[in-house]
C-alpha cells in the first residue's frame, strides 16, 4: 500500500476522532489551553523581569571625576583605557561646561547657591566620565583598576580626582544580590510551573486515550501496524495542541492590551502589549511548537501503553 494512502487515512481518522469525541476533545483543549497560557505567561513574566532588571542595572554607574586642571588629552587617555576593559559596556564624557550647566539647571531655584557660584571667577567643577559595566558585579573591578591608575603616578592617572564607587558600594552590592536572586528564583518558578502544567496536559491526553484502550486492542487483533494505530491518535493530539495554541495566541491580544497599563505602572518601562506585538513570531513559534509537540508526544506515549504488538 502506498505511503501516501496510509498518511491520508491516518489523517482522516485523526480528524474524525477529534470531531466525534467532541467532549473529550473539549476537555483536552481546555487543559492544553491553560498549559499554553502558563507557558506564554512565563514568557511575558521572564521578559518583564529581564526588562526591569536591565532598567535597574542601567541606573548604576561609576563616575570618575577629574581635577579642574586636567587636559582633554589626559581625560581621553583614561577614557580609552576604560573602553579597552572587557567589563565596560560604555563610557560617556561630560565636559566641565556641561557639568556647570547641569549644576545650574539643577539648582535654578536655589538662589543662594547660584549667587555663590557666580561669585567664583572660575568654573569649580571638573570634567567627568560616566562608566557603565556589563554586569553590576563588575563595578568593583573597574573601580579597582581606576584606583591603581590613580596611585600609579602616570599623568593620566594623577588627573583623576575621585571615583564615586566606594560611596555607592553597599547599594550596588545589594542591588547585585537582588538581581541575581530574582533571576534565579524566576528561573526556578518558571521551570516548576512549566513542568507542572506539562504534566497536567500530558495526563489529560492520557486519560482521553484511556477511554479508547479497548479500541486499540481491537486494532491490534485486526492486524493494524503500530503506526496505523498510533497515527490517528497523534493527529488528534496535534489538533488539540494546534487549536489550543490558536486560542491562546488570539486571547493574548486583548489580555496583554488590558494588563499593559497597570503592569507598566508597577514595573516601569516594560510594556506587555508591545512585547506581544514585537515578539509575535517568537511567541507564535513557542506556543504552537509546544502545543503540537505536547499533543503528539503525549498521544504517542499514551497509545504505546496499550499497544501489545
Amino acid at each position: 500500500m502506498s505511503l501516501w494512502l496510509n498518511i491520508k487515512r491516518v489523517a482522516r481518522y485523526g480528524l474524525i476522532g477529534f470531531i466525534r469525541n467532541g467532549f473529550v476533545s473539549l476537555a483536552a483543549i481546555s487543559i492544553m489551553t491553560l498549559t499554553l497560557f502558563v507557558i506564554s505567561g512565563l514568557m511575558i513574566f521572564g521578559s518583564a523581569l529581564n526588562a526591569t532588571l536591565v532598567q535597574l542595572t542601567q541606573k548604576v554607574d561609576v563616575k570618575v571625576y577629574f581635577t579642574t586642571n586636567s587636559t582633554d588629552a589626559e581625560i581621553t587617555d583614561v577614557q580609552k583605557m576604560l573602553e579597552s576593559l572587557p567589563e565596560v559596556a560604555s563610557v560617556s564624557f561630560m565636559s566641565r561646561d556641561d557639568a556647570l550647566a547641569q549644576f545650574r539647571e539643577r539648582h535654578k531655584n536655589d538662589q543662594l547657591t547660584i549667587q555663590a557660584l557666580d561669585e567664583l571667577k572660575d568654573n569649580p567643577l571638573g570634567a567627568s566620565l560616566e562608566v557603565r559595566a556589563k554586569q553590576t558585579s563588575q563595578y568593583e573591578a573597574i573601580a579597582k583598576f581606576l584606583s591603581t591608575q590613580q596611585s600609579s603616578g602616570t599623568i593620566a592617572g594623577s588627573s583623576i580626582d575621585k571615583v564615586n564607587f566606594y560611596q555607592n558600594k553597599t547599594a550596588i552590592d545589594r542591588l547585585t544580590n537582588i538581581i541575581d536572586t530574582t533571576r534565579r528564583l524566576g528561573t526556578i518558578v518558571s521551570i516548576i510551573m512549566g513542568l507542572a502544567s506539562l504534566l497536567i496536559a500530558f495526563n489529560t491526553i492520557r486519560l482521553a486515550i484511556y477511554t479508547s484502550r479497548d479500541e486499540i486492542g481491537v486494532m491490534n487483533i485486526v492486524g493494524a501496524s503500530r503506526w496505523y494505530v498510533r497515527g490517528p491518535f497523534m493527529i488528534t493530539g496535534i489538533l488539540y495542541g494546534f487549536v489550543s495554541g490558536l486560542i491562546v495566541l488570539i486571547l493574548l491580544y486583548p489580555i496583554t492590551l488590558y494588563i499593559s497599563a497597570p503592569l507598566q505602572r508597577f514595573l516601569g518601562t516594560f510594556n506587555a502589549f508591545a512585547y506581544y506585538a514585537g515578539s509575535f513570531p517568537i511567541i507564535f513559534f513557542v506556543i504552537m511548537a509546544s502545543g503540537i509537540a505536547l499533543g503528539a508526544l503525549s498521544s504517542y506515549l499514551a497509545v504505546r501503553r496499550y499497544l501489545h504488538t
Partner: peptide, 29 residues
C-alpha cells in the same frame, strides 16, 4: 476473530469498522 462482546470500534460507523480491516490489509479505496 469474533468475540462475545463484539469488540467493534464505537466511534466509527459500521462501514468504517469493516473498511478498517480492509485498510490494514492494504486494500485500495
Amino acid at each position: 476473530t469474533i468475540f462475545q462482546d463484539f469488540r467493534l470500534l464505537p466511534t466509527k460507523t459500521i462501514y468504517e469498522n469493516i473498511a478498517f480491516a480492509l485498510e490494514v490489509a492494504g486494500k485500495g479505496d
